[in-house]
Amino acid sequence: MKGLIYREFYLSRKSFILMLLVYVLFVGMLSLVFISTYAGNLAGTEGVEEMRSSMFSQMYLYAGLIAIIGTVYGHNDIIEKDYQSHWQLYTYTIPVSEKKIAASKFIVRGAFLLLGIVLAFLADIIFSAAAKLPLSTGHFKNILIAGLLYGAVCFLDIPSMLRFRTQAKNAAIGLAIVVPLFAAFTYGAHKVIRFGYAEAKRLYPDLEGDAGLRKVLMPYIVKYRDMAVWIAPIVFVLTVLLMYIWSVKELKRRRY
């Protein structure tokens, strides 16, 4: 199986290096922006403290998403290329079982995902140091949840690609499922925000802008986020297990 794992890494290395460059540039440039808020041309500007804090609360997430999505991205097209290059057929002629073929893909994708999550944590630490703001456990929890949920989707992609063979077909089927879910989510979010505004008007009539809304919703967000920290790993592990079984089954089915 080691050979199969090497192969997956060799095929992903170029995309990974490009992603790493984008990540380093993004984190580096934003760190400079953070530094400039107290030691550069932005220092002393009115409201700069609030801007730095607000930026920190968002940018760690963007850097994290670049890291998590970017590291796995290079591994996404390998299954389609395996079919195009006839590697998929060739694997049936070498002394390697379907379980090992599937495992090699899961191990490499898992390694990239883990690396992405580590890089996302690292970006948060760098931003915290650059912005001279304390590290937040909330940030770590958010990164972990984002990483595990995105990871679950990434692992779902493996048997799905084995089944549908091309990214275009896979994406079309994925969209057909995701679009109604996203519409439901958007509708739910809209209802929650309406509820938040109504409650803010009733409970905190003196607060301006979205401050009241934040005050109303934050306890819910924190509560559900803390629940998600426990649920996400379970969802992740179950998804990985189920997807592994599906992948092995799909590879066996290909022996028509």
Binding site: L4, L11, K14, K81, S85, L89
Partner: peptide, 22 residues
């Protein structure tokens, strides 16, 4: 087979490292 079953992005050194483990 009539077609090379190795990805276009690989080279002979890579194949040696992969297949020696297989």
């Amino acid at each position: 087979f009539d077609e090379l079953p190795f990805d276009d992005r690989l080279n002979a050194n890579d194949i040696n490292k992969i297949l020696r483990e297989v």
